[in-house]
């Protein structure tokens, strides 16, 4: 959890100072597929507030979008299996909508890059999660 928070905050700093890719959204979407925990909703709110404050936007706009996006993912978590394709498509659509609705511009390239970043995160953390679950099971059997 702490690692996710730190990673998201780092993405927020990058997003507000160096690059325009919505990395924070991509991280939140990807982790909501992997971990499916309620605290991700609270994290979405906080990250959205920080992001809006740093970009001098109306505070709450990004949080609203993040919350709805994560909530929709949670709603459909049982109906859709979290695969690479699903994570990529969700990231792509959400990043596209976010840049269009909140930032006022849209870029297919940015959506593609952010989605690719999400996929990389998904592969890495899904593997780590699988290894951790296996270790846990082994320990339980012993």
């Amino acid at each position: 959890m702490i690692f996710v928070i730190l990673l998201t905050l780092f993405a927020v700093v990058l997003e507000s100072s160096v690059i325009s890719l919505p990395l924070a959204l991509s991280i939140l979407v990807t982790f909501s597929f992997i971990y499916k925990k309620e605290w991700l909703l609270a994290l979405s709110l906080i990250i959205g507030v920080v992001l809006d404050a740093l970009a001098l936007r109306t505070i709450g706009a990004s949080s609203l979008f993040f919350l709805v996006a994560i909530f929709v993912i949670f709603l459909y978590e049982k109906k859709i299996e979290a695969s690479i394709q699903v994570v990529f498509l969700s990231n792509f659509v959400l990043v596209f909508l976010y840049t269009f609705l909140i930032k006022g511009n849209f870029s297919v390239a940015a959506s593609f890059l952010a989605s690719s970043f999400g996929i990389i995160l998904f592969i890495i953390f899904n593997k780590l999660k699988t290894v951790s679950v296996k270790e846990h099971k082994l320990r339980f059997e012993i």
């Binding site: 309620e38 909703l41 609270a42 979405s44 709110l45 959205g48 507030v49 809006d52 404050a53 001098l56 109306t58 505070i59 709450g60 706009a61 949080s63 609203l64 919350l67 709805v68 909530f71 949670f74 709603l75």
Partner: peptide, 30 residues
């Protein structure tokens, strides 16, 4: 049920923040 409740509370909180921010009340927080 838990998820819905948490979502409603957080959305309400966000809307309050949004309105306050629009009214320039949250400048100090920014």
């Amino acid at each position: 049920r838990n998820l819905n409740l948490i979502f409603i509370v957080l959305i309400f909180l966000t809307l309050v923040l949004f309105i306050f921010s629009k009214l320039q009340v949250l400048n100090f927080a920014g």
